[in-house]
Design a protein around this nucleic acid. Sequence first.
DNA 1: AGGTTCAGCTAACAACGTTAGCCTGGAGAT
DNA 2: ATCTCCAGGCTAACGTTGTTAGCTGAACCT
Lengths: 201, 201
Amino acid sequence: MGTPQALGGLPLAPVAPRPELAPPSPRVGEIITAAREVLEQEGAAALTMRRLGELLGIRAPSLYKHLAGKTQLEAMLVDAALVETGDLLHGVVDRADAAGVLGDLLAAYRAHARAQPNLYRLVTAGPLRRDQLTAGVEDWAGEPFYRATGEPYLAQALWAAAHGTVILELDGRYPPGSDLDRTWAALTAAFRRPVDDDRSG
Amino acid sequence: MGTPQALGGLPLAPVAPRPELAPPSPRVGEIITAAREVLEQEGAAALTMRRLGELLGIRAPSLYKHLAGKTQLEAMLVDAALVETGDLLHGVVDRADAAGVLGDLLAAYRAHARAQPNLYRLVTAGPLRRDQLTAGVEDWAGEPFYRATGEPYLAQALWAAAHGTVILELDGRYPPGSDLDRTWAALTAAFRRPVDDDRSG
DNA sequence: AGGTTCAGCTAACAACGTTAGCCTGGAGAT
DNA sequence: ATCTCCAGGCTAACGTTGTTAGCTGAACCT
């Protein structure tokens, strides 16, 4: 662990400001909560305006008194999820040292996605409607990867690799019987800094 | 060329058999072709039974004389796409040498996905209905990553990382202005074998 | 000729997001 | 104390989606 750059540089200090989400009205808050429960416990297909109304004791069209539409509702879910993810990962990096930050970050990312797979899919699948998001949430959620690597494009590659590895896990796309702990270990090893020290463990 | 197993053993020889797809009936073949055109040129949202019928000069319900449903049609698209991807990537690995196989494979993977983004999404998004696929197509498409790495879990990690990197690119999820060539270069560098030879390039 | 099968058709259903328009209870203003 | 207004519910309905049921005509085989 005598890597020179590491003792001085990694993990880097956070620089992106934690974004402040506009607090939703009470009723909208309830809707978001209900939406999140339906999404996580009944699946993405069950996240329907009618089902949502049912859970809230109102009819589907009444939801439009509070929301512009389903797209906006999803955007609010993504917004909140990104901030939470950022909080979690920043915390992990805060607590890590240079030797372990990469493994800790990837482990936390994986665990977080597996804990709420449907929300993770919602956040990461398809194009991102940036105009519907609170400014800065994307940077906030992604910065831990930069703090862990110290180089923006390595950070992007690491984030992308982590995403690919976890989304395939959530979707059950690996060959049956795969030991995914080993897959993650291989990924972590690949991104460990190829400095002169040959790591052990 | 003539690197059977000598210079470190990569690339490995192929071992998975190229799967033989059951040839569809002529009409089903037309449907698949039309579906692929609609998907790629009009987007996933346009791939509808009615639009498909329109293109074929029949009504949507008539499609059910040939297909079990939209799910099966998608499965057939995935089936064919996986074989094509396997063919392409195997060919790349065939032509590569140990020094360049990793970069060549990743570059080919990226180019292939970008050439047919909607098909790529269809193939890789969501759970895979293995029971609807021809046996062996998955192995065939994935084996090039094993041939390039020589280790199954490193191969999985590489494949997952490549997928993550490209799907985020297709969905425009990177920060605006990113130079994705550099992201891919960082990914490639991370997975380059940390053997004693420090290659340059 | 007669029966069977193939491959089209229309009509219709359930579920989806969403819009239009009505009604009502209660808060705030006079 | 009464009036006004409107937030927030409601029903009805529209246009999509995938899909099923049932009819029909043509081709084909005996």
